[in-house]
Nucleic acid binder design. Structure first.
Lengths: 225, 225
DNA sequence: CGGCTTGTTGACAGTGATCAATTGTTGTGG
DNA sequence: CCACAACAATTGATCACTGTCAACAAGCCG
């Protein structure tokens, strides 16, 4: 692909509402970059949310991660500049591009410590994701997801029990490695058990029994509960 | 945990055969570091192989990755110096420790480009791992594993069809998110189909039909084949 | 040789995928 | 503003894959 594809693309798209320096405001559902694109740097979410995914030639889509304020993404391209994944914004978002040259230039005044630290945080999150995917029941996967999202929100100063999901059921299902139908069933099951409450028939979920969810994730092989 | 835990530990253990600079030769099955340890840097495999894993309080073990010559590991600790995973060597191995100070010190003569690049490579590999874990059949998981291992070997100048696995069935199974029994069954199934051959009743596998394996990984939902 | 770990195989049950149908939600144009 | 279409989400019935439990074979090392 072309050099600076993503940057050039963004600049020419009509979805850019404001630009100053390397911060962009992107509208919902817009594609930031796609598999195979040559990225000119690493991205950071300032506000809003982004999903990262791969799609195989057979059309299957696989969600690799969701990113919120403060998160880095596009790290797939660190090795050779070419992204292995695509990224779209889930809601109106503010994104910053950190050019590779700046990251690698010793003369630049970038904070290596915090950059490396952020990379490490992303790394750990992905490992947790892999852990959950590898051998957990659908119930455990969803419990983990809800807790993770809750933690992410509370770390950013929002309520830990009132979740407003920016992504669709399908996105969550693909992220957790189950099909939508299964996810839907588990959600209603959680509702009936009183663990959560689906509010306003929409994408807002209230966590009622966070400790039970925690136990579900931690407990060894207690399928029941 | 203590500062420099892993380094100090290594120096005092009897499993160190030779030390010069930061390169260690470690015997098989020895623990390099464990969950919660404070690492003083990132590790690199010079020769041999290493596995990285987590164990939950319930005793379940989860294999996060295998590392061969040239690979970095211990990246879990990039964020705050504390490792989220344990690491053991699978065979006699030569390991280098790259201290954080060196990595972050601009005055040091370290090659940031290659370091960042290596981090990116590890990142991509983990993403592939997560992809396979999320919704693939056991057959596809094993096919992917065999291909990945084959690629790793051929990139290092070894035969792409003669695999000598340094890890147990259990390790592979936990890495792929299935139980040993399932892995065993798939292996014999692959044998009967003529895709692979188990040589010498041991941990050496010969790949006979690599293209069929490739198709298994790529193909959409062809469970049969 | 005998204990111990690793690996294989069988029978059965359970979880989740698939297929199909229905309802709810969003968004666009008349 | 409503109507219709497209999409998102839920629910049910069925079946296949894989986990579980159990037994057994095969290396490994004392």
């Amino acid at each position: 692909m072309n050099q600076l594809a993503s940057r050039a693309q963004i600049n020419t798209l009509n979805n850019v509402h404001s630009i100053y320096r390397d911060a962009f405001v992107i509208r919902s559902h817009e594609l930031l970059f796609k598999m195979g694109d040559h990225l000119s740097g690493v991205y950071r979410v300032n506000s809003g949310s982004v999903k990262s995914f791969k799609s195989s030639e057979s059309g299957e889509e696989q969600i690799l991660g969701f990113y919120m304020a403060g998160d880095l993404f596009g790290l797939d391209a660190l090795s050779d500049g070419i992204s292995r994944s695509s990224a779209v914004v889930l809601e109106a978002s503010n994104i910053t591009l950190l050019p590779f040259e700046t990251l690698l230039d010793r003369e630049s005044n970038i904070d290596y410590h915090s950059f490396i630290k952020q990379v490490g945080i992303g790394y750990n999150r992905d490992k947790d994701h892999a852990m959950i995917l590898s051998h957990c029941t659908a119930d455990r996967r969803l419990a983990w997801f809800l807790l993770k999202f809750s933690d992410d929100l509370s770390q950013r100063g929002y309520s830990a029990s009132e979740l407003t999901l920016p992504m669709t059921r399908r996105d969550i299902a693909l992220y957790l490695g189950v099909v939508v139908e299964t996810l839907s069933r588990v959600l209603t099951r959680f509702c009936k058990k009183g663990l959560i409450r689906l509010r306003g028939h929409q994408r807002s979920i209230e966590i009622l029994e966070i400790d039970t969810l925690r136990r579900m994730v931690l407990s060894c092989k207690n399928r029941k509960n």
